[in-house]
Design a binder for these strands. Structure first.
Length: 191
DNA sequence: TGCCCGATTAACT
DNA sequence: GTTAATCGGGCAA
């Protein structure tokens, strides 16, 4: 039986937590799968929502670690982050892609798609498949409806630049499972 | 109050 | 490769 992650998993540097999340199983109401792609954001990072200080929207990022920060992207999609480090450090990991393992029929229905590779391969896509919205903003990650299970086998993690940014575009703070078919975009192989 | 624009996605050419 | 969709946050005035 896989081991559940506790909230203390997140009470570390966001740059340790982010790669450690690859291979972790994330379920929401029993639906989800293995995390295969994430990005790290830190309050000193110009691309982070917390960079300019606390606001109504990013308040959860300034709270204690182990909670979900959900925001609206482009007025259309929802994206979910896991808050890390000590309260007030305002750092978080954006969950960008999941390899679906649990609840495939309901995810297909919500997404209106049959192709398993497109169900959760992107931050907006996975929130639609798991039905995560702003109603989940601020929820604890170690309590239902969230469930997190430690990885059961080793995974090979690769890093690269984050996606879709106009600031701090070169920081290599995107992490993913090497060779996964469920990434939102492939990682460029080292030259 | 007004204006610009984004941690995206899908549907184009 | 390019672009529309769509709207709240954040900042200037």
């Amino acid at each position: 039986m896989p081991k559940r992650l506790t909230r203390s998993f997140f009470n570390r540097s966001v740059h340790e937590v982010a790669p450690d999340l690859i291979g972790v199983t994330l379920l929401f109401d029993g639906v989800g799968g293995r995390v295969v792609e994430v990005e790290a954001y830190h309050h000193t990072d110009p691309a982070a929502h917390s960079f300019r200080g606390p606001t109504d929207r990013n308040a959860v990022m300034f709270g204690p670690p182990g909670y979900a920060y959900v925001y609206r992207s482009y007025g259309i999609h929802w994206c979910v982050n896991f808050v890390c480090e000590a309260a007030g450090s305002a750092s978080a990991v954006l969950i960008r892609a999941i390899e679906p393992t649990q609840g495939l029929p309901v995810m297909r229905r919500r997404r209106g798609l049959a192709d398993v590779r497109l169900l959760c391969s992107g931050p907006g896509r996975l929130c639609e498949a798991l039905r995560i919205t702003d109603k989940q903003n601020g929820l604890a990650l170690d309590r239902p409806p969230f469930e997190l299970f430690a990885r059961e086998r080793a995974v090979e993690v690769v890093a690269g630049p984050r996606i879709g940014l106009t600031k701090a575009v070169d920081l290599p703070w995107r992490y993913g499972e090497k060779g996964s078919r469920f990434l939102s975009k492939p990682f460029r192989p080292p030259t």
